[in-house]
Every structure is written in structure tokens, then in C-alpha cells.
Amino acid sequence: MKSFAYVDAANEQEAIAALGTQRGRILPIAGGMDLVGLMKDYVAQPDRVVNVKRLDRTIAATPDGGLRIGAAATLIELVEHAGAARAYPALVQAAAEVGTPQIRHAGTVGGNVAQRPRCWYFRNEEFQCLKKGGPRCFAVDGENQLHAIFGDGPCHIVHASSLAVPILAYGGTFRVAGPSGERDVAAADFFQMPDENLMGENVLRPNELVTHVTLPPPGRVRSATCEIRFKQSHDWPLALATAILTMSGETVRGARIVMGAVAPVPWRAQAAEAALTGQAVTEATAGAAADAAVRDAKPMSGNAYKVQIARTAVKRAILKAAGLPTV
């Protein structure tokens, strides 16, 4: 790890003031679960690190019945928040599966959303990949079993955040604070594909922070997240999916379906939503929606198996949301 200076920001204003405009030179640290590893591997080499743990960490209902989560809230605080679990089960289910107890105890909501990709070419210093300003994506003709099955590159990471998936599905908004004030960015606009932003994964400028996540009132929906990972103890998901169903009796009147770990951004599956709308949820309709979700998948040389897994994640998220058995 390269040495760096440290600013312990007492509040949002101090944190913003301590950040700068040059990418990578000054980085915020919250739980450190992502950044410390990045620095140890010399992938991040900031000159200054700014502690943002003292920013707002409250999790509270909004006046209109939504939920506002301070970005500095830890994952365990979210998991243990009874109100959040009741109203936004898909979010809390995703949070409960992140990493390990130790990671959930330190890692924050903001950090989870803004974490960098786990792509092993990105994380290992030897590979000067596109995302690090290098000439090529090593995954294309290399070891791409964990890489994206959606998107056209040129970088084939999968987005690392599990929370991003339900946040997008619930239609969440990020409050972004920077030197010129604050702005609200819809989750749908927050995450960016590599052709739009190769060096980052979202719209945050180097001197901006996510300070809050706001979820609109859930309404009368049924929602669930299904994560599929290989190693049960601790592993990154091979795929996950959130399904949010607006029901009218037994019939789905509207659906929001988002997949994770399959693309450089949380990947909305509108075809699946359309396929499910107007149907009663059964193994067959959930399966048909899941087929639709992965119909346009473009697997790489070694990750076609992930298409099947993503399909299963979607199907099971739908069944789980509907309260049906998943296997």
C-alpha cells in the first residue's frame, strides 16, 4: 500500500471539501472493505484518504412512506432494521447475503453501491487492463468465467454491488453531494456502462459522494432477491435477481426485474417484466419470464453457464416474491 494522508471528515461538508477533482488522487473511505484491498494491491494509490464514516447513517421512513438510508449505515444495520426488512425485503435479503459477518459489520451501504469491480484482471496489478488505462480487456480471450454475459464491452466486468440490484428494482434514488451542491440521481441513471465511463462504474465525479439512498414507497408489491453463489460460506454471487411484483389478485399487474453479477451495471430485464405481466405466477410463467430475461445474453468464451444461472436466479426471485417454493 502506498502511503497517504488522512482526513477525518466530521460531516458531509468537510468530506466534500477534502475531496478533489483528479480521479484516484483522493478517495473516500467508509468501511474500507473495498478500498483497503484496492490499495494493498496498488490498484488504488491515493495521496489522500477521506473518512466518510461520520456522514449520515440513519435509516428512516420518509414522510411519503418511503425509506431513506444514510450511506454510512453499515450493512448489518440495514439487515437488522425491522422496518426496512418489512417494507423492502428484496433489499434486506440482498444485504444479508453480502460477504461475511465481518464484512457486513464494517461495510456500508454507500460503499457497497460505489465499490469497484472484483474482476481479477482489474484487481491484479500485473494486468494493465482497459479500466486501468491499459490497451485491452484481458477477459475477452482469457479467464472470463466470472465475467459479464450482457453488454458489448469493451470492458466485461460485472458490477459488484448486490444492493444496487434491489435499489434499481425498487426505483431508488441516490443523493449525490459535491462542491456545487447536491443532486438526486435515479438509480437507473446512476450506473454507467463501460462505453460511457470506462474508468468508473457510475456518474460520481471524483469530488462527489453518495450520501443517501432513497426508496419510494413500496406500494402493494411483493418482492424478493435470489442470490446464487457457488461457495455457500463466502463467495461472490454468480448471479442474483430481484423481482418486484405488483399483484392484482393472482395476476401480475406490473413487474420490475433486475439481475446482478451479469453485466457491468445492474441489468434490468424488461423483456422478463413484459412476459410476466398479465400472468399468474407459476413455475411455468416464472420460467418463461426468466427465459426472456436472458434471451439477449451474449456470453463470452467461458461463461455460457452463467446464462443458465442468471435464468435460475430470475425464475426463483419471481417465485420467491410470489411466496411460492423456489426449488
Binding site: R118, N124, E126, F138, D141, G142, K231, Q232, S233
Partner: peptide, 24 residues
């Protein structure tokens, strides 16, 4: 796992070199 093109190991760690844990 060695990168087939460079011969460099892509999982020289305990995150992607998977070792069984309690739930496995």
C-alpha cells in the same frame, strides 16, 4: 487459475482461490 495468455495467476488470494468454509 493462470491467465492462458500471460501465464499470470488471476486468483492468487483467498477470495477467488476458493477454500471451503463452515457452510460448505
Amino acid at each position: 487459475i493462470l491467465d492462458r495468455n500471460t501465464g499470470q495467476m488471476v486468483n492468487p488470494n483467498m477470495e477467488f482461490y476458493l477454500l471451503p468454509g463452515p457452510s460448505d
